[in-house]
Nucleic acid binder design. Structure first.
Length: 667
DNA sequence: AATCGTCTGCTTTTT
DNA sequence: GCAGACGATT
């Protein structure tokens, strides 16, 4: 291969790319080109003769992995790019576990349970375990269990506490179901690699160079995993920004990056401080805020982009007027400055804050998109389809089976299901096995027995068809949904034609996705199902088809950028959130605002309201204490109430009219 | 089995 | 203020 070209990189970036051996810590500030560095580093390693499959780049999201792979494909031979392992933590673990999980006493066809599945299971366990006067919310228990798994809390010795007992039972139950939750993917992989030297060595030999993206968001288990994968060579390059650590509440350990040296001694440390995104007004504002955090690796972002506008802080009388002013401003700037709706974003702390903006945008007929919110995968029909598929892959998967056993209604009542579950616990086998057990069937009425037998033979039939060599698997799945009467039943239970249209569209999307996965990758239901369960967003479609002003939480905005950003609701109690003050995590809230500020490329406006409607009633608010920390030299303060009521000035009207004429002229 | 009414209790959510 | 859960009703 020709000599690798590095001329698009600045000196620090180039050093990060060329430092290939031994531990490396890259402190990459917001907008400093970290994705570029990771991909260039992979390309550089390959150009120097490293085989692509010996390079591992781990990310948190599928989107990031995909983006990296795409970029790498533009830098080197796409065939080689394809062979480079770029994967999320969870997908990597699935890959490892599908090969060797048998050593931990699970079967290789294990099911992966998502949040909803696990919460449901925990709920069931709580009702079975708790005494009359004991109460435990399933959601809370799920969080506690997740935290326990992620911080390495083993089986609690004291299962005298309800949560301890539920934890132990939950793990046992999962194992019986031959299922794992998201946390288990990491936990079991760490256990597998830790306890089985030959497996560990095999993977260590494979991954000679490891890179980790968003290292500030890794938790204890993820660090353990990386440590286990890196052999004594320790060719581990981590990229991250402690100032953008905003997932502490999900178990991310900022100490992983702050104390990197204790985990990997004598690392090379490289700081990327040149920002390619924002103006210096914006970066200076961000710097002035974040320097108030005590525990951080000092860095100062700078930009070659001079000029621009000062950052505006607007005080608004209430949230209604906040929405009115911002939406109005976006509307007029789009026209007068010839911008696109996509150039604007509205950032907020809580999802609930987007509501008012949504209605205001609708009223003004401005297109908008809400990022996040309810996921495609939370819809009933998608869960049902995936449950059908899961049943064919893992006969022990009771959770999926119970989901679809009487969906559509086929004469297997709750009572029958209850009876089957009890019998399965007694017989120590799966519910599916019980439904085929002659002894059990004999206890049923002739009618119920007929229904059960029809159901099991239907699934058997589908199972057979699905696993035939050269089967048209997407076709089988499609047939399953029709022949089971599922689709007809779904249509019947939809209240409006629009609802049916939406649900049907979702299913069609899902099946099309499987079809193209099957045709393109030549992979089967197993692999596709894994990918679906580890992917909670329909990235491609969402991003390309939908356009308009972006409405997004601060958390979800990390990694994105917009020319013009409005950061709303900067009030004490909202940002920082009331709860964070009680929990002592105000620093993380400050980082959250920092992330928000650094999303802006050209202009940034921060608003706060003197009054806000919270839970139905109006409360008065104070501006966020963070606003006092921002460098006053870089900021303009306005009273937004006045701006809103001020009559339109002559010059503004002329400008606007001129712009309209301009647009008409172009037509 | 479906539907209606009342109660509750409120961040953020990469997989 | 409103969604989501749960229990009582038909």
């Amino acid at each position: 291969m020709a000599a690798f070209r590095l001329f698009d990189l600045n000196p620090e970036q180039e050093r990060a790319v060329r430092t290939t051996d031994g531990p490396l810590l890259i402190l990459a500030g917001a907008g400093s080109g970290k994705t570029r560095v990771i991909t260039a580093r992979a390309a550089f390693l390959i150009s120097r003769g490293t085989a692509p499959e010996n390079i591992l780049a781990v990310t948190f999201t599928n989107k990031a992995a995909k983006e990296m792979r795409g970029r790498l494909a533009t830098m080197i031979d796409p065939e080689q790019a394809k062979r480079t392992v770029m994967s999320t933590f969870h997908a990597l673990c699935v890959r490892i576990l599908r090969q060797d999980i048998e050593r931990l006493g699970y079967k290789r066809n294990f099911s992966i349970y998502d949040e909803g599945d696990t919460t449901g299971l925990i709920k069931k366990i709580i009702t079975r375990t708790a005494a009359r006067d004991e109460k435990l919310e399933a959601g809370l228990a799920k969080n506690l269990i997740s935290k326990a798994k992620n911080t390495g809390w083993r089986e609690p010795a004291d299962d005298k506490t309800l949560i301890g007992a539920v934890y132990a039972r939950y793990n046992q139950e999962l194992k019986n179901l031959n299922a794992v939750d998201f946390d288990d993917l990491l936990l079991l992989t760490v256990r597998l690699l830790g306890e089985h030297g030959e497996v560990r060595e095999r993977w260590q030999r494979k991954f000679r160079y490891i890179m980790v993206d968003e290292f500030q968001d890794t938790n204890r288990l993820q660090l353990d995993l990386i440590t286990l994968l890196a052999d004594e060579k320790k060719n581990v390059a981590v990229v991250g920004d402690d100032d953008q650590s905003i997932y502490g509440w999900r178990g991310a350990e900022a100490s992983n990056i702050l104390e990197f040296e204790t985990h990997f001694p004598n690392p090379a440390v490289i700081k990327l401080e040149q920002n390619y995104r924002s103006t210096n007004f914006i970066l200076g504002t961000a710097n002035s805020l974040i320097k108030n955090n005590a525990r951080r690796r000092a860095k100062k972002l700078w930009s070659a982009k001079e000029g621009g506008e000062k950052v505006r802080i607007l005080a608004m009388p209430d949230d209604q007027q906040e929405a009115a002013l911002i939406v109005g401003e976006i509307h007029s700037r789009k026209i007068t400055e010839g911008l696109k709706w996509e150039d604007f974003a509205i950032l907020f702390r809580m999802n609930a804050q987007s509501r008012l903006f949504e209605t205001t945008f609708r009223d003004m007929k401005i297109p908008y998109r809400v990022v996040g919110g309810n996921s495609f995968f939370d819809s009933r029909e998608i869960k049902d389809v995936l449950a059908y598929a899961a049943c064919l892959m893992n006969a022990d998967d009771d959770v999926s089976l119970l989901r679809i056993v009487n969906t559509p209604a086929r004469g297997i009542s709750d009572g029958t299901v209850e009876k089957a579950t009890t019998a399965s616990i007694h017989a120590r086998c799966s519910v599916f096995a019980i439904l085929r057990d002659e002894e059990f069937l004999a206890t049923l009425t002739a009618r119920t027995r007929g229904a059960v037998e029809k159901f099991t033979s239907f699934l058997d039939d589908m199972d057979l068809k699905m696993h035939e060599p050269l089967a048209n698997q997407p076709g089988v799945l499609r047939a399953l949904l029709t022949d089971s009467g599922y689709l007809t039943d779904l249509q019947r239970t939809c209240k409006t034609p629009e609802e049916w249209l939406k649900r049907e569209q979702n299913i069609r999307y899902l099946l099309d996705d499987f079809q193209s996965y099957h045709d393109g990758h030549g992979k089967g239901l197993r692999e596709w199902l894994d990918a679906m369960l580890l992917r909670h967003e329909r990235e491609e479609e969402k991003e390309e088809e939908v356009s308009g002003v972006t409405l997004i939480t601060l958390h979800a905005s990390k990694g994105l950028e917009f020319p013009h950003v409005h950061l709303i609701g900067c009030e004490e109690g909202v940002l920082p959130h009331e709860r964070s003050k009680l929990e002592g995590t105000v620093d993380e809230e400050r980082r959250l605002l920092y992330v928000g500020i650094t999303r802006a490329k050209q202009t940034l406006a921060i608003t706060w309201c003197r009054n806000r409607t919270k839970y139905g009633s109006a409360v008065s608010c104070a501006p966020s204490t963070f606003l006092k920390e921002l460098d006053p030299d870089l900021i303009e303060r306005h009273d937004g109430g006045e701006l809103l009521n001020k009559p339109v000035t002559q010059e503004k009207a002329t400008a606007k009219f001129g712009a309209i004429l301009d647009m008409l002229g172009k037509l």
